Amino acid sequence: MASQGTKRSYEQMETDGERQNATEIRASVGKMIDGIGRFYIQMCTELKLSDYEGRLIQNSLTIERMVLSAFDERRNKYLEEHPSAGKDPKKTGGPIYKRVDRKWMRELVLYDKEEIRRIWRQANNGDDATAGLTHMMIWHSNLNDTTYQRTRALVRTGMDPRMCSLMQGSTLPRRSGAAGAAVKGVGTMVMELIRMIKRGINDRNFWRGENGRKTRSAYERMCNILKGKFQTAAQRAMMDQVRESRNPGNAEIEDLIFLARSALILRGSVAHKSCLPACVYGPAVASGYDFEKEGYSLVGIDPFKLLQNSQVYSLIRPNENPAHKSQLVWMACNSAAFEDLRVLSFIRGTKVSPRGKLSTRGVQIASNENMDAMESSTLELRSRYWAIRTRSGGNTNQQRASAGQISVQPAFSVQRNLPFDKPTIMAAFTGNTEGRTSDMRAEIIRMMEGAKPEEMSFQGRGVFELSDERAANPIVPSFDMSNEGSYFFGDNAEEYDN
């Protein structure tokens, strides 16, 4: 993207840094990872977990959730003011799984939030270390993106479920800051804005008074975040219109849905970061690795190297396929839920299948599930090659597409044709070009129609051997075009429920 120079890199967003050079960025990201790792080690000690239990991804998720809940100030305040039966607002906890007599047992633990905050700050040299908290939120978000298709949420806001490739980060909490905003897809931002506008339509006082002023500035800020994701002048001009509207209503909703559809071809720039579970960072720190000293990046080879040398386990339900569970977590670790499966298959070195073909449910185990038949197995999170994460949407291309997802959002900077089903997408653009945004709409449609099938995206960008740390010898991959490109292809993934 041309304006790259004016933006802070995501590592800076990730670490609240002012302008830093590459070495400083690597050190501050490393410091953040160190903090998460030290916190995780301490929690495993508190909970008396064995090494194996500490490497269980379900335990990692519970521990991450506990610290996120302990620092969720708004919710904590709300819980104190609106006490609900049987919930102690000062405590947080969740299921911890232990191996007892050759069987997995679930144990519900409860801790004072104050105590968890103390352990977290102690692991982070006394700081609140917001960057580390956001990092864990993005890992949870990436896992949700890989596990669930947001059909219901899309339909509720009037969008087409086939636009799911635009929904990265749709389950990120509001408090995820600049680093969170960077990884949100165009569809996620559109959905947040539509929800806001709908509230304004239904509630006369939404934009009024002292609160209304705050609401208005939040609305304009979200519009600017979305505008910054678009790469064409016409899309940005249309966002200006939406932002400046005196009284946002149905016309703005129409414009936003139009823009979301246009992003299936004229893709937005959305950041991709490899955020790993805390149970990967903990053992690495415990083994003596100093992330701050060595430096770390979320968008280069580092996460690949770390996963190459990590042992992570997962509980497996009786009829689940461990290899499929591994694929789910591998995609989440690489922030690749909406990437082209052919690119992923090449990088991973084994075939990556669409969601609907995987015999696996989510990673988390519900409290009512029976533990008797639970097994555990090693997650295979290694890769054959590594590639640089991208934040450009890439230019655009036609490809055989599917009944489910009709476009992709690249996660890796790797040369390819970008699949999208042009006739299906263009069919949504018939007729409606009147109104105050008509010239911009016409211009956007013209650009979409001009998108050429034979153009290559990320020209000359390749993948790298894991021994090639400096990215000196790019390998331009070859793809098996007979395979499906979309992950949520004609899909039956479970729906995400809060």
Rank of each mutant, 00 (worst) to 15 (best):
K198L: 14
Q42E: 08
Q405P: 01
P161Q: 02
P419N: 10
I445P: 02
K273T: 07
R174T: 03
S69A: 05
G450N: 00
I301R: 01
F429I: 12
A234W: 04
K214A: 12
L418T: 00
E443K: 04
T430I: 03
A123S: 00
T130Y: 06
S50F: 15
N59Q: 09
I119E: 05
N124R: 04
G460W: 05
T378I: 05
S287H: 10
N144E: 11
M456Q: 05
R117T: 02
W104R: 05
G295Y: 10
V463W: 09
T130M: 00
S245K: 04
L108V: 05
R243V: 07
A251R: 02
I475L: 00
A123N: 04
R74S: 08
G228V: 04
T350D: 09
S287G: 14
N205T: 00
V463G: 13
L47F: 04
Y385P: 10
G393P: 02
G362S: 08
L328Y: 10
L266A: 07
Q311K: 02
F304I: 14
V312L: 03
I301K: 05
M196L: 13
M43I: 05
T62H: 02
P83I: 12
G394V: 05
L358N: 11
E220I: 03
K325S: 06
R75V: 08
E455I: 13
R174P: 09
K98Q: 04
L110F: 08
I41Q: 06
V29E: 02
L264C: 05
Q12R: 00
A428N: 04
Q58N: 15
F479L: 15
M238T: 13
E11H: 06
Q308T: 04
M136D: 04
G393Q: 08
R102P: 14
N417M: 00
R416S: 15
D468N: 13
R236W: 13
L193P: 13
E24Q: 01
Y487R: 13
R65K: 08
H140G: 04
R382A: 09
M32K: 04
R261E: 12
G187D: 13
D112S: 00
D128N: 14
L61Q: 07
V155E: 04
D255E: 13
K357V: 12
A411K: 06
L143P: 06
F230W: 04
L466W: 04
Q409E: 05
S359C: 08
